[in-house]
Design a protein around this nucleic acid. Structure first.
Lengths: 336, 336
DNA sequence: ATCTGTGTTGGGAACGTTCCCATGACGCAA
DNA sequence: TTGCGTCATGGGAACGTTCCCAACACAGAT
């Protein structure tokens, strides 16, 4: 049975003694237009032949490919993993498959991948941009393929971005750190470059810090040597007031934690708060306080924009997970 | 310019005053069969029209779809992330795109995804199986679509598995732990069930331990409550000899580390070694010793089997990364 | 001068589907 | 009876490619 090597619509039609049109209808949701006996015959014939529609052929002839594309800047980044997971899940629930492409932060790869996705007639693309491939994105858009930007904006397509509310995230972080008694703050991020979320967070930090009248200290590299010396002098110079470090994202949190380790900085006495929750944050020393992103909501919103193009909210609030790294010695645990 | 909304082969041909055949050749690697002036004309016409081949159409007409499918059991598992990253990269280098599907360990999803991939005419499938979808796999195989199993074997397709050399990994772990002076060992894994790698590692641990004459202690759940009590009594009862815990994979390492934390077990004094390297392993206490998998080699081998079907080695040796968690107090650091 | 080979080009038929339109059959109002 | 919607079905032309085969030109060998 089930010689499934290549059953086609026509073979099913022949076996069910009907026409390809009817079989096509049967498999593309117009089943109710067929009489009961015919439906039964088709169903049986298809089952016997192990028939499954060829989605390439379907995609060719105008009908939707039921494919979505997702381009991520670095799939090993925990942020991307969480995002991919959430998006895949949301897509699946809507009957779409997801082609995931990784660019390793290479704009050239990004361009190539976008062209590839276009070539596969995807019905929508979610981009976590590494560069600024506006040519490719506009081409897609112009073809009628909707595009949603995740976490990183691009100047020419600003309106379509979905992601964390960066300003709010920084505000929450500062409120928490201030509430815990930290006064001198250092903001650490990897080079902002084209990544708009990093830029937005950095800008907000500078703006808010200035407004509070605190000295504004930022570091925009994760280069280990620089990080070590900066962190070293920062904590030494400011040691008369409680100091803390705010990390702009998962990558920064990892590097900074490594630096804390190398310098034997006492977590908590020197505060540490990271944007992005990671599964090891609870494990290091007294635990690292983080702001977690609501990925399911973000993914859901991205798909809604893509497919239903109802304009769901685009910016989401993070969730504070308070741990020991922002509890100064002798201070009671923060209330939940 | 670049009204790329839907340029087709024929439009390019018309504009270049030639035939679709020539344009087709130009875009499918037979460029050198065309005279230089013709090539130039086609190139210019295509560029002006912003033409890109429609891969759906190409995939339809027998020619390869240049698509590969990958089904992973849990994309949030660091193992899967590393595997996906390596496979995507290797695939890209060979000119293939990768559809990544996540099953969240649900056999039903797995079946669905395999059927989906078949429907997209993928040219090969890499499966990190959650269940035992042998019907779907055989159907694919029978259709001429090669299948490679990653990390988890399936009884009926045993020959095609690629992954870590589980027995060797356990042996290396035991050698290292023994060399560091640990005598009483506990092996922790999530429930083996259908996951053959877990089973293989567990079996090897039992076999080797028995051969050495040590008591064989294993735990096959990561349920926090059970883990805590087991770990507690294990370290208490055996405290006259140096004890250590061996974790079967990344997930186990995470859970066990959490338990160590909760119980305030001193890392190193109680040994800890995990199979699978994780980016936070260097950060927890004195660092956690791990056995890293050579993902690039594994991915390369998987693709080689898939596409060139040369039978490259199927089992790979892990790489020991010795850290503080397997260094007993008063012992000098292990030699590299 | 004719034959044969090689290199370049084009025409037409697939591939498996969807979709437009045509065909009957049937029931019901005129 | 005729006329006319409605329902169930089928035939054929797309969709954008690739690939087989034919055609032609031009070289060198006979």
């Amino acid at each position: 049975m089930a010689d499934s090597s290549r059953a086609t619509l026509i073979e099913v039609a022949d076996r069910a003694r009907t026409s390809k049109t009817s079989v096509s209808r049967f498999f593309s949701g117009e089943r109710d237009r067929l009489s009961a006996p015919l439906q039964a015959r088709i169903d049986q014939a298809a089952r016997e032949l192990g028939y499954h529609p060829n989605l390439m052929a379907r995609g060719l002839k105008g009908a939707g490919s039921k494919l979505l594309g997702m381009v991520v800047a670095d799939i090993r980044n925990p942020f991307s993993v969480a995002a991919v997971h959430a998006v895949e899940r949301a897509a699946r629930e809507r009957g779409y498959a997801l082609i995931v492409c990784n660019t390793d932060n290479d704009p050239e790869q990004e361009r190539r991948h976008l062209e590839l996705l276009a070539a596969y007639q995807v019905e929508g693309v979610i981009v976590n941009a590494a560069g600024d491939p506006h040519a490719q994105l506009h081409a897609l858009r112009h073809r009628g393929v909707p595009v949603v930007l995740l976490d990183r904006e691009i100047a020419s397509l600003e309106s379509e971005a979905v992601g964390l509310d960066d300003a709010l995230a920084v505000d929450l972080a500062l409120d928490h750190l201030e509430g815990q008694g930290y006064e001198t703050l250092l903001f650490v991020t990897n080079a902002p470059q084209a990544a708009s979320a990093r830029k937005a967070r950095l800008a907000r930090f500078i703006e808010r810090s200035a407004k509070r009248g605190f000295p504004v200290t930022t570091l925009t590299t994760l280069e280990p040597a620089v990080l070590l010396t900066t962190l070293g002098t920062f904590t030494r110079e400011a040691h008369e007031t409680p100091t803390a470090v705010l990390c702009a994202n998962a990558t920064a949190t990892l590097s900074v934690t490594q630096a804390f380790n190398a310098l034997h900085l006492p977590l908590g006495e020197v505060g540490l708060l990271g944007i992005d929750e990671l599964d090891w944050c609870a494990l290091v020393g007294p635990g690292i306080t983080t702001l977690a992103q609501p990925f399911d909501a973000i993914a859901e919103a991205a798909l809604a924009r893509l497919l239903d193009d109802c304009s769901t909210p685009a910016r989401f609030a993070p969730h504070l997970i308070a741990r020991g790294s922002t509890r100064r010695p002798g201070t009671p645990p923060a209330l939940p």
